[in-house]
Design a protein around this nucleic acid. Structure first.
Lengths: 297, 297
DNA sequence: AAGATGTCTTTTATCCAAAAAGAACAGAAC
DNA sequence: GTTCTGTTCTTTTTGGATAAAAGACATCTT
């Protein structure tokens, strides 16, 4: 049956909201809570019932009032707070880049289901998803073959990325001077400077900034198909570098400086300069990833 | 449970093979039949058992011999010879471009399952597949929203197609003179000429030729991500023009001539000429599809 | 009348079971 | 020794059951 992750998260989330409140304060109405927690009223009612059963809130006429502030122990266990598809994606990716999976091998869905403690249906859905990432392939006999994070894969991925990014660069420099993207670009440049000035402590924040920067650039030429590829890339990068922290500081430092050049190239509105900076950045990223794979493989 | 489409197709397929044979002839061994029919030996054995039960073949020692040639009535009904996913894809696409589905509307999976006479699991898989085509979108509440074959969609699709095709054209003209692709190009030019000379009768064959031509061009710069987009395009075109036969002859005639120019452009190895011909062809295809959608919508 | 709550219906996520298809292995036949 | 067949086991496909979550509607309160 369906997991109740949504309920559990909403429950913990509601405790967070109650934490700062003084006892006796009235809770918002059910629809208001539903909007606040981002769930349906059905779920809100389940949460309220549990809070009442736990003695955290109590009814008072039509309203509910806080009886005591939530304690640490009121929170539901962190285990089982992750949606099943996400949990599976994580486990599967870890398996995929791990030693148990070698490129070209047939994937045994039943075995994976046992290993991960989920049903074969869940595995099936997961495999379907990853096949769109090009990491898997379906054979004629209905089985899946692992392709894996190979050199070829990375080459093709970065070829696509270049296509995407150059296309976006061309459109970016052609934007009218009053376009909101220019302000956003200046703002993100500031963030780069700020990160650089405190790099030793904050170098791990780069990944998120990187994501936002490329999203800004690519956002001026929106295309759902390219967007898909961008999503694939995010997933690949995320999982690969999660397992491969080697040289992370150095890597991020170089990329940060390249971003600044790239931003300046865009800001100059000189298409050749912008393209050159973009190309340089992508080339570095490509060879960094390739090196990292070769070392690991 | 699993459908037995594979068995049914193998059974009919085996009747085809038996049709030309004289009674008394010995059948190939089980592994040989398995290879011939493209199924496992398990399925072959089921087919053989049925053939024997039907009195078409009989055992003779370790071998099996043909007793009588198969009759028309021996064949299994054509209904149920289509794999479920394909059948669903077909029905779903028809529904998607039909009047019951309007862009922006929420899709009711349960209702579709009832309509199409399949389980919700099958629908779920189908929806997942089509979401990668960009025709659907998942909302936060777990529901699907139809995006449909809108103007935006076509614009984005053709933007991608241009990116793909120009990239391929650049690589194509740069191929060494002894590359196999040049011979293939010459051969496909012949096929175009042949089709043109008998156009009135064979104009429907253009669709398949079109597919092969673009596959040849794009094949010189293989990329699994672009390959996916090519697949999306094939599906969209296939279904859309299946329901929209208006001006088919004229449309194909124009495209055929554009292909010839495109081929000549490539053959000249003049990159500008090739690009121009390619651009022209894609522009026509884009506006043809857009017109066709606007008329239908 | 606007918004809240109680109750009921619909839809979705997930696992499970059963049938179909595939694969593996041992012994038989050539 | 190679290839075929009989047998058994594994894996995949598909529908159905069930709990979770969402949504709808009537009723109630202010």
């Amino acid at each position: 049956m369906k997991t109740n992750v949504i309920y559990r998260r909403a429950y913990n989330h509601s405790l967070d909201h109650l934490a700062g409140q003084a006892p006796g304060v009235a809770l918002p109405s059910e629809p208001a809570l539903a909007a606040l927690l981002g769930v349906s009223r059905t779920t809100v009612r389940a949460v309220l019932a549990a809070l009442e059963a736990g003695g955290i809130i109590g009814p008072e006429g039509r309203q509910r009032r806080l009886i005591r502030p939530p304690r640490r122990s009121d929170y539901l266990d962190a285990a089982g707070l992750e949606p099943l598809p996400e949990m599976l994606e994580r486990k599967f990716m870890a398996w995929m880049v791990g030693p148990d999976c070698r490129p070209g091998a047939v994937i045994n869905g039943l075995d994976l289901a046992r290993q991960f403690g989920v049903s074969t249906s869940a595995i099936r859905e997961c495999l379907n998803k990853f096949s769109h990432f090009g990491l898997l392939e379906r054979q004629s006999n209905g089985r899946w073959r692992a392709l894996g994070l190979t050199i070829d894969f990375v080459e093709e991925l970065f070829d696509m990325r270049e296509v995407m990014e150059f296309r976006a660069v061309d459109r970016f420099v052609a934007l009218p001077a009053d376009h909101a993207a220019w302000a956003a670009l200046a703002a993100i440049r500031e963030e780069h400077e700020a990160l650089l000035s405190d790099f030793a402590r904050r170098y791990r924040d780069f990944s998120e900034l990187d994501h936002r920067f490329h999203r800004l650039v690519n956002g001026v030429a929106p295309n759902r198909f390219l967007g898909n590829i961008h999503g694939v890339m995010s997933v690949i990068f995320h999982y690969h570098y999660q397992w491969n922290k080697k040289d992370e500081t150095e890597r991020n430092h170089v990329a940060l400086h390249e971003h600044l050049d790239y931003i300046d190239g865009l800001a100059s509105r000189d298409i050749d300069k912008a393209r050159a900076a973009s190309r340089l950045h992508l080339e570095t990223a490509r060879s960094t990833l390739l090196t990292s794979i070769e070392v690991a493989g």
